[in-house]
Design a protein around this nucleic acid. Sequence first.
DNA 1: GATGAATGAGGGTTCATTCAT
DNA 2: CATGAATGAACCCTCATTCAT
Lengths: 201, 201, 201, 201
Amino acid sequence: MEKREAILSCAKRLFARKGYDATSMDEVSKCADVNKALIYYHFKSKENLYSTILLHSISSIHDSIKARMDEISNPEEGLKIYIDAFYMEAIKNNAFFRILMREVASDGVHLSKKVLETFLGVLDILKEIIESGVEKGVFGERDTKVVHFLIVGTISFYLCSGELRKKIINDFLDREELLKDIGDVSQQLYEIIVRGLKSDV
Amino acid sequence: MEKREAILSCAKRLFARKGYDATSMDEVSKCADVNKALIYYHFKSKENLYSTILLHSISSIHDSIKARMDEISNPEEGLKIYIDAFYMEAIKNNAFFRILMREVASDGVHLSKKVLETFLGVLDILKEIIESGVEKGVFGERDTKVVHFLIVGTISFYLCSGELRKKIINDFLDREELLKDIGDVSQQLYEIIVRGLKSDV
Amino acid sequence: MEKREAILSCAKRLFARKGYDATSMDEVSKCADVNKALIYYHFKSKENLYSTILLHSISSIHDSIKARMDEISNPEEGLKIYIDAFYMEAIKNNAFFRILMREVASDGVHLSKKVLETFLGVLDILKEIIESGVEKGVFGERDTKVVHFLIVGTISFYLCSGELRKKIINDFLDREELLKDIGDVSQQLYEIIVRGLKSDV
Amino acid sequence: MEKREAILSCAKRLFARKGYDATSMDEVSKCADVNKALIYYHFKSKENLYSTILLHSISSIHDSIKARMDEISNPEEGLKIYIDAFYMEAIKNNAFFRILMREVASDGVHLSKKVLETFLGVLDILKEIIESGVEKGVFGERDTKVVHFLIVGTISFYLCSGELRKKIINDFLDREELLKDIGDVSQQLYEIIVRGLKSDV
DNA sequence: GATGAATGAGGGTTCATTCAT
DNA sequence: CATGAATGAACCCTCATTCAT
């Protein structure tokens, strides 16, 4: 039913922008132009609506990234594609990354085992790339999770802070560089990380 | 006067762990063992309590980092000290970084101009370091804000996700590496970033 | 739907006897035997509940008085009917007149434009009667609003002070005349006013 | 002490304009620029502060009117002086009349016996005048309390509604007559009432 | 599927009042 | 006299949720 989809879409946007607690079922129902009770008919509870959205988002992200991993021919290219795929997902599915940031800050109180499992799956793809790079001697030995956070943290902060940076530019003078990008960001991120990871040779 | 401090301390912890909306004034008063009305006597409103905490935190972080900048002798060392100072503050003042993550996700709805200004001050310190590095030819030209996000994003995600990673380890097998650090994280972060930033020659 | 009516009726009585501020939504809900949240479901806010009641009352008063104005054959009779109609409404809709007294004392802080407009409509009916009387030479020239206040003020004070007068009689000796009426009050009021308004001839 | 007077003066104004319940002790303390606890030091409770003001006001009104009653030579002049004295007090002590209107509407919940007694004293002055007029055949027999309400009600409504009428003029066109007086109001009121009371011959 | 009405619990906030100094 | 700090009760309002239709 299209109403079900409208609820999901509105709720996702609201949860992303305002957070779980600041989003009321009333707001969701008004935004989706449906009766409040209908949300309960479809999703049973607020908690369930939230985790439905989360699982759907992370699964879709996982599948998208996974799909692009066929193209890999070597670890460096693998890293490039991974970062690019991640970056693209963070643009397309910006809402999820906002939710993710909040969940990290809240120690993942609302994250179900299934959601965590899928997220680990995404990280495992990177792990394989890096381990294969270390094995082949192109990457030095690093704590893999630091690289995870390098990618996830940077992209999340960057792509979720657009509005905030816009706001800052309005409030302060001479801060236009906060919005204008010098070169392709995903590319720069890749360059910095791949250089940083290179083995000493 | 000590009651005022108790309120600030409890509120900060709660806001950090649960977020602004999920934290009730009742909770704060119970945690600080004071009458709820006393919070209003000292802080006028929840919003004001929150922004008082924010301003206090960011100012203290700014001052701490600023204080360490005397030690700098060259851009590479400056970067190292900056990252280390930032990292240390993120450990000491973990609560603020959780709040920061949520505020980024919410487009900074609760951030006052003064708070933003102070935060910009922290970023400006890094900007100077990088620009001086570019000038001296040790760093290649990069979009400075990408480096900002590399540092802030990575450290925030890493140091705020400790509990979440612990939780994951309890729920899933063979994930101990999520907690055990290989080497010093701040040092690794520095190495990756400084290599990444190096100019091509 | 009957619950909505119960809320309106209880709220009206309470607002009249205790005033806007002394009337709590808790009281209203208990009196109407409904859940407090239901009042907000139907009326959105206390302020809105109050102004709904006011508008409904003044409209009904206006219509009742207007309806009796067909009977008029000359200004003196018009005045008589007006006073009588006003008096009857002040008995039937006593609550409104108590609210009116408080609103006058508060400079009408809670009175919406629509309420004021309708009230002006009631006063305009009197204005027409008096002006036609002056034109025909039966009434001397007077400041019309003094006559308004003569009627509205006297009737309001008289018909809202019943309980207070009863209370006085209980507290003091020899004050029975405060309750027992000598003759018909509306009639006396009419006689005094019509004599008073007569042109000198 | 002058602070005591400041409290009384501010409280009186606030009680008059906003009513007992809408006036908070905080407001009073801020308006009078004194510490809140000092009000309790001087007046023990809000209720006591209120009734102190009331008793003081009504006593002063009683004395002022009583003082002018020496001038009387006949009932008609007595009535004129009474109305004029009342009118003057209602201008000078406008606050009390606003409070009075609210108290009537609330069945005098806050009125102490002493206050009521003093108010009855004011009414008794009028009663004497009228009774002497009836005795001398200049006034017809009327229910005295109707005359009371004629005077008190009209003057109260008229002199407390100035701000409200001003507001109406701002909101609606062609209502200037609500503020501009045609002739002396106290004089008109006297003329209307004395004509109205005249015995038939 | 879809809705309007209804509810108990809890939200932030303000209140009159007290007390130690 | 005068004050800053502190409190319990009550305020208006919103919440997630349910139910009859």
